[in-house]
Simulated assay, not measured.
Amino acid sequence: MALLHRATLRPTKLDLLTAWLPGRQWFTGPAGVEVVSRGAYRFDDPAGEVGIETMLVGAADGPVHQVPLTYRANPLDGAEDWLVGTTEHSVLGPRWVYDGCADPVYAAALAHAILAGSGQADEYFEVDGRREVREPTMTVVATESGNDNPPSVGALRRVVDQDSTLISTDTVEMVVVRRPGVGADGATGATLIGTWDGQPTSVPLAYARVR
């Protein structure tokens, strides 16, 4: 379950991504053009410390790009090269925003979502002491999964950011598709697939396999 706050961010997530994305080798689009959101889904951090959101974004008339993000109250040691930016959350205060592919909390959540078949987290707003469901802007499900006891992910060992992003841990190897519907040809393993407005048929978003 992802419990969200009705809050403002300065700068916004899309502002941060508009500045950050042109420096990624897998990004297709002109620099300086504002990106728009096509959909998003969340995973749950069991410890409740790290926000985990994956956004699908792109220029208004360009391809869709998948960007996992983690939101932290403090900097993540050793992840300076993966910092998307910092923002001020009107409820939670300063937040450090990272490309989730280099965040061990995201890696563990992605592995569990695919290998255990848990998929995306339900989203809620807390309003006046009660919880209101937030309707998702896209749907993701895992295929070829159902392992009730997936292995512990362990430490991140290697992250290779190319057309797709390889995340290698002690026990699990994962591939995040950066341009859904285009990249990661030849990737194997249990698969996370998704649909969103404008993409009515399911396409692979990520793969995971036990090493």
Rank of each mutant, 00 (worst) to 15 (best):
T54P: 07
P46T: 00
W196L: 09
M55G: 12
A187D: 03
E173C: 10
L56K: 08
Q199N: 05
R131P: 09
P180N: 08
G189L: 05
G198D: 06
R72Q: 01
A208F: 01
G129E: 08
G93A: 02
D61T: 14
F125G: 01
P204Y: 00
R24K: 13
G198C: 07
H65K: 02
D103E: 05
G189E: 09
L115Q: 04
D197G: 08
P30A: 15
L110F: 02
L17D: 04
W20L: 06
R134N: 14
R209P: 02
L56P: 07
Y41E: 05
R6V: 13
D77R: 13
P75E: 05
V91H: 04
Y124V: 12
G117C: 09
G181P: 11
L115H: 06
L83H: 05
P151Y: 08
P104E: 01
A47M: 09
F125D: 13
Y98W: 08
G186I: 10
F125I: 10
D185L: 13
R158Q: 15
S164H: 14
T195S: 11
L76C: 04
V176P: 00
E173V: 15
L69R: 10
L92T: 03
R38I: 02
Q199F: 09
K13M: 11
D15L: 08
P63I: 11
V159S: 02
A108C: 03
L192D: 08
A31M: 03
V105S: 02
V160D: 15
